[in-house]
Design a protein around this nucleic acid. Structure first.
Length: 355
DNA sequence: AACCGCAACAACCGCCACGCT
DNA sequence: CAGCGTGGCGGTTGTTGCGGT
């Protein structure tokens, strides 16, 4: 009401930014800030650009201390770990990598990291196929996935997963399903995106919340830490725990995971982070969140979701129990947080001039 | 040298949540 | 309180450059 429209699209320039435009935008923001209104900014400067475009240009390219390219192995690991943990929440992932933008990370993942992991998985599949006497002859994970889905009612299609002792190198706590306080804390901590989508999880865990306390509005009260983790994970739990696919909204990662691709990603990531303490701990916490501790041993991170898509011998009542130890996860998650380097602590990026 | 395919990156699009009027 | 504008985010598309044939 009474506000100017976003921009006059007819008079807005599109396409690559010229150095002159960059200079104008950068010098203005450095001197005056954004003024809290990106839409009005281009008019003030005399740029024929959409305000959104200016904002993106500033955030992704012009603001100080931005790094492009040259991702280190450490950064790869962190990205992969966080992707497994929270899915394609690029802005959150970017917040853990100083100097990196969500756009950069997103591109990097889509163009390199994903393929890197795919390559690893293909190699592993081939090796495994040889070991299995050629039972598995899929050329890629998607064909494997198809076979899994079509044959899931009939035959197990993944190697039997050894049942490993439920102990973790990162905690001495024993899992307890009765620790509803911890569960509640975790879910509340995840609260940023925690909504009714995940009500079935609460139902499945038999949680008793005070009236209305599991609603989005109440969880938002506890967002001072800005931890927006777990929508994907919760969605996956939702799917796994109920032995049926109930994808949460926009839960692409969960879809991937349950369909089987996620398992190869986590397998490969498991290898990637095996020599990296921070990533291993981070991944350990996050994957335990998915799979339970048995998934994080000697890099054998696989099986739960693969099994879920196979529907093989897994008893889902048992599996979901062994998969989810919320109290354990919560404590591990805290541990991971506390042990993170300061610059990696979960926090929102703040930009000069940003509101 | 020309063409083609692919990878990498920049930018746009559309949706959503939130706050303002 | 409804409607609208804005900021923010993730997905997708467009462009460019490079390597191979």
């Amino acid at each position: 009401m009474g506000r100017a429209p976003c921009c006059d699209k007819a008079n807005v320039k599109k396409g690559p930014w010229s150095p002159e435009e960059d200079t104008k935008l950068k010098s203005y923001i450095e001197q005056h800030g954004t003024g809290g209104n990106w839409i009005a900014l281009p008019q003030k400067i005399g740029l024929k650009r959409c305000g959104k475009s200016c904002r993106l240009r500033w955030l992704n390219y012009l603001r100080p201390n931005i790094r492009h390219g040259g991702f280190s192995e450490e950064e790869d690991n962190i990205i992969c770990s966080l992707y497994v943990s929270i899915g394609s929440r690029w802005s959150v992932i970017a917040a853990q990598l100083p100097g990196r933008t969500d756009n950069d990370i997103k591109n990097y993942w889509n163009t390199r990291l994903k393929k890197k992991l795919l390559g690893k998985h293909r190699k592993e599949l081939q090796a495994r196929n040889k070991g299995n006497g050629g039972i598995l002859k899929q050329e890629n994970s998607s064909s494997l996935l198809l076979q899994q889905n079509s044959a899931q009612q009939l035959h197990p299609c993944w190697p039997q997963i050894p049942v490993l002792p439920l102990s973790s190198p990162y905690t001495n706590q024993s899992p307890s399903f009765n620790d509803q306080d911890s569960i509640r804390k975790l879910l509340i901590k995840l609260g940023g995106r925690f909504s009714d989508d995940y009500q079935p999880i609460l139902d499945g865990l038999n949680l008793q919340f005070p009236h209305g306390s599991n609603s989005l509005s109440s969880t938002q009260q506890i967002q001072e830490e800005q931890v927006h983790v777990g929508s994907s994970a919760l969605g996956c739990m939702n799917s796994i725990g109920h032995n049926q696919v109930q994808f949460g909204q926009s839960n692409e990662y969960c879809a991937e995971l349950v369909q089987g691709q996620g398992s190869f990603i986590t397998t490969a990531i498991g290898e990637m982070v095996s020599s990296n303490d921070y990533s291993r701990r981070l991944l350990g916490g996050s994957l335990e969140f998915f799979y339970g501790e048995e998934m994080i041993t000697d890099n054998k991170i696989m099986g739960a979701c693969a099994s879920s898509s196979c529907g093989q011998s897994t008893n889902w009542g048992e599996t979901s129990s062994s998969l989810m130890y919320p109290s354990l996860v919560a404590s591990n998650y805290e541990g991971v947080r506390q042990e993170m380097p300061r610059e990696c602590a979960f926090q929102e990026l703040s930009y000069p001039g940003a509101q």
